[in-house]
């Protein structure tokens, strides 16, 4: 991948990947930072990127791993007790249905959320989701089925279960 090819790839996919990662992790600023860092690594390791069948999947996976790494680090008890260093959960003024969707996604198990986002937002076929997540297709289908059902319940008008 030469400079012009990379620039075109970066320009065309940055916003899309940020949106996808936002849906996966629920924090848009964090999503943008992780996608940004993933592209730096993509250029740094562009030989690996050349060998990748789907460069966009390579960047998405890298960004997602970065984000998950941050989550886990925080979950291990290192969440700041200091409110002055805690970013607001919702930094943007999002529309109500979007906020509800993100809140609902955050309540799903990570594997179900990942399957739903990759399949329905990233528009990947089940086979590609299986390849990207490293699990059998049957597992992806099961996760999609359970995820859809859970999402429907969480977003039903009377669920009231969309709080973070």
């Amino acid at each position: 991948m030469d400079e012009s090819e990379f620039d075109a790839f970066y320009t065309a996919s940055f916003a899309r990947l940020t949106g996808q990662l936002h849906a996966l992790i629920g924090d848009r600023d964090e999503a943008q930072e992780c996608v940004q860092e993933a592209f730096v690594r993509a250029w740094q390791h562009r030989r690996a990127l050349d060998g990748a069948e789907h460069p966009e999947a390579w960047v998405r996976t890298t960004a997602y791993r970065l984000a998950v790494s941050r989550w886990r680090r925080v979950k291990l008890g290192r969440r700041p007790t200091d409110r002055s260093v805690s970013a607001p959960l919702w930094a943007e003024a999002a529309d109500e249905s979007r906020v509800a969707l993100i809140c609902a996604l955050r309540q799903l198990p990570e594997a179900q959320r990942q399957a739903l986002v990759l399949h329905h937002l990233c528009d990947l076929p089940v086979q590609a989701v299986a390849r990207e997540t490293g699990v059998p297709e049957g597992t992806v289908k099961a996760r999609l089925s359970r995820g859809r059902a859970a999402l429907a319940v969480l977003l039903s008008p009377d669920s009231g279960a969309t709080h973070v």
């Binding site: 943008q32 940004q36 943007e92 999002a94």
Partner: peptide, 13 residues
């Protein structure tokens, strides 16, 4: 809704 999630607003790459 998920399929139409989009980018969620302007990005600043």
């Amino acid at each position: 809704q998920l399929a139409r999630f989009g980018t969620g607003g302007p990005v600043t790459p």
